[in-house]
């Protein structure tokens, strides 16, 4: 029952600091790429934002690996970028939203008809793949890197914004690049729709941080009623409210 000689704050043990301090990697002995890839790539802005924001423990991963998370963050940010109107996908926590969704029934297609046989479909017959969304996503993210490496000799997160847009464009429209078991378009559509969902769904799900997605477009979230506002000829700006407010 003795106090520790050195009580340690959480930062002392963050992965980055650990690596820096322990000397385990400094000696250049990084094993089979084991440790290197575990360190977040963009450390600078990370350090700053950590200092200011209150900690949200929900911002951790249930599904992605670090690399997948970073690729998702980069790709969604191109789809929904930060600009003068407000935060982009990254600032909104969209990649966390996607991570949590893919870990759940949505990623498992739990409510979809997944019995075979699977045939090639006409355009009007809807998706026929028996691959689950989580798998399509993982293959798609790998595809983004593969294609980036092929065309720009670098992984997706290391490309310039213009190059990233070019890669995404290819995935959105072209047929020049093939994924195993899914089309790039299938993946891209999933990526795009989940980006929009993550920007605008209730913050309960891990995206739409601080309701900033809603604030940008003056959407008031979950209000009890609009009997007054609805008859107003002027636009009425209402501070948004999340489902959390209903918990009393």
């Amino acid at each position: 029952m003795v106090d520790s000689n050195k009580p340690q704050g959480p930062e002392d043990h963050s992965r980055r600091k650990f690596i820096r301090n322990s000397g385990i990697a400094v000696g250049g002995i990084v094993v089979g790429g084991a440790l290197g890839s575990l360190i977040p790539t963009k450390q600078k802005d990370k350090d700053q934002s950590n200092a200011e924001k209150p900690i949200n423990y929900n911002d951790a991963l249930m599904f992605f690996t670090m690399e997948q998370f970073q690729t998702t963050e980069a790709a969604t940010e191109r789809i929904f970028p930060e600009d003068e109107l407000g935060p982009g996908a990254k600032g909104l926590g969209v990649a966390y939203y996607i991570d949590h969704q893919l870990a759940g029934p949505w990623g498992m297609n739990a409510k979809d008809y997944m019995e075979g046989p699977a045939y090639n479909a006409e355009a009007t017959q809807g998706t026929q793949t028996l691959m689950r969304r989580a798998d399509v996503f993982a293959i798609g993210l790998k595809g983004l890197d593969d294609y980036s490496n092929k065309k720009y000799e670098n992984k997706f997160t290391e490309l310039t914004a213009e190059e990233q847009d070019d890669v995404l464009q290819v995935f959105d429209v072209a047929k020049e690049f093939k994924l195993s078991g899914a089309t790039t378009k299938q993946f891209f559509e999933l990526l795009r729709s989940m980006t929009i969902e993550g920007a605008y769904s209730d913050p309960l799900y891990g995206g739409n941080k601080n309701m900033a997605g809603w604030k940008m477009r003056d959407f008031p979230g979950s209000q009890m009623g609009y009997t007054e506002a609805i008859m107003n000829k002027e636009f009425v700006k209402i501070e948004p409210q999340s489902l959390r407010e209903h918990m009393g």
Partner: peptide, 28 residues
């Protein structure tokens, strides 16, 4: 010629993979 790292006694072995590459596994 494969390198295996030194264990950090982090307490997550059984049912977990080793983030340090310090537990011998086929993967390293």
């Amino acid at each position: 010629g494969e390198t295996i790292n030194a264990c950090q006694y982090c307490g997550f072995c059984e049912r977990f993979g080793c983030e340090y590459g310090a537990k011998s596994s086929p993967n390293i």
